[in-house]
Design a binder for these strands. Structure first.
Lengths: 275, 275
DNA sequence: CGGGACGTTGACTCAAATCAATAACCGTGG
DNA sequence: CCACGGTTATTGATTTGAGTCAACGTCCCG
């Protein structure tokens, strides 16, 4: 059963992003902080940071809801530290995960259109967010064009991400979906300066399953398969990608490669495709 | 074979939205038109309409691409008349449809974030769009806060729509996905003043299949099933929903109701669920 | 240290993908 | 106007990936 590797110190060894966790709750931060978070250069952020006041922040503990499905659109948020899952619950109780949001990502923006949140967001870990009412938001973007630019950019990003999700839910083999998901996470890690090969999953198997549109058992089996093929190792929520190029080649496949009996070390093979 | 009904005049009987189709190509429209399209009241639109100039428009014929995947973000669009499919092509040639966009919907906004279009858009029928470069767009929203508001609202809507798509691709019975899709179209029809019971599908079965994440044969079979259940009738791309409440009840089911052999007239049954 | 959620694994079943063949439709040009 | 070829849609036969049910091990919080 110990086909799975154990990392040197798997628990409590991940770097704590939340440097403020021991301090009392933060109630507001200068606007410049938000601008910087959204990608403004330090210079730009400093210029408008001073006179234009502060932005309220809010702390959310792991498992707590930032907002519920159907709730009135009181606030729009930008993740400052931590991460969230965004989901909607169908009438029959099925929880469909729509997105995982991390640092600098928007939450609750969908509510602008109809005044209500079409989905819910709960924290996957202790987190803090910038929070603005729609009125404050519109006021702020009018006064600070830079913020408007950055906001549009962030929304555009969120929209593009949703497009990626469709790629993950596309009708391809479950192992491929998982591989694509892991690569997506890997890219995000890299983008925020973390290791693209090794990271900690902040969500459970069920959430991954819902996000990928498969049963949670299938996620387990798919992890097993990737490990068996030598593409990755896992220890619960710790993941190490052993063969990025191999994984990418594998993720490009629409159909699963034939399984020759169980213990083939290098299965993945890129298919050369001419449009 | 003629289980399928034939409408009185199925072809060329749909109201032509495009009242300008016989006139020479329009090159620009007043800004007020765009504002009105995005939902501004006539008064608001008139107020800012005059002095602030015009917005370029572009005609696209059926089947023509508005922009290609990977193309630089030269323009952002708002559909004025017609409809489009938005899709991305995976390396192996599979075409994943991400959205169908109609009147007043945004196209190409995702490109703002990274300067390139992450997906392509092609017209499903002869269409016209408002087109702005990112620079023009940012300039316009700075000068016209109302436009910014409406734009944010439209984007919020688009984001919410993508959330709906995830609901369509969720792992439920194919017939249910199709039912949900038809109800979505029905709602859009109603929202734009058209009949919610009867309409013309602007996309082919393959596109629907891709959008729902199933094989195109499955879409055909699912249409067949809905017809057999007595919930709808179809004649190629003409659709009539015979039993909206029944369809809604059916669409709420996560698992398919047992098929008792083939010719059951009223299958759908709502499941009462307590969260 | 106990209990409930989480994760893995196995056996079985079936919905839907795939393969295949036919029919309807549509634009085109003879 | 109709014949033609390509695309699109329907329908059937067959196979299989993954959903479901179930049992067990593991983790973690209180």
């Amino acid at each position: 059963m110990s086909r799975v590797l154990h990392f040197t110190n798997s628990r409590s060894a991940m770097p704590r992003l939340d440097g403020a966790s021991a301090r009392p709750p933060v109630l507001a931060e200068p606007l410049g902080e938000l601008l910087r978070l959204l990608g403004a250069s330090d210079d730009d952020a400093r210029v408008v940071g001073g006179p234009l006041g502060a932005v309220p922040t809010r702390r959310v503990t792991a498992g707590e809801a930032l907002f519920h499905e159907g709730a009135p659109a009181e606030t729009i948020h930008v993740v400052r530290v931590g991460s969230f899952k965004v989901f909607r619950t169908t009438e029959d109780g099925y929880e469909q995960v729509l997105a995982f949001a991390g640092r600098a990502e928007l939450l609750g923006y969908e509510a602008l259109a109809h005044g209500r949140h079409p989905n819910a967001a709960v924290a996957l870990e202790d987190s803090t967010v910038f929070s603005l009412t729609p009125a404050e938001l519109f006021d702020a973007v009018r006064r600070v064009p830079l913020l408007d630019r950055l906001l549009h950019r962030a929304v555009s990003d969120a929209l593009a991400d949703r497009g990626e999700q469709a790629g993950l839910m596309a009708p391809v083999a479950a192992e491929v979906r998982l591989a694509r998901f892991l690569l997506q996470l890997s890219r995000r890690q890299a983008a925020s300066g973390q290791s693209p090969r090794r990271f900690h999953l902040r969500m459970g198997r069920r959430d991954i399953a819902s996000y990928l549109g498969v049963a949670h058992e299938t996620v387990s089996r798919s992890f097993g398969a990737l490990v068996r093929w030598g593409l990755a190792v896992t220890d619960n929520r710790e993941v190490e990608l052993l063969d990025l190029p191999g994984l990418q080649a594998f993720a490009a496949n629409t159909r699963r490669p034939v399984d020759d009996g169980g213990h083939a070390p290098h299965r993945a093979r890129a298919v050369a495709v001419v449009g």
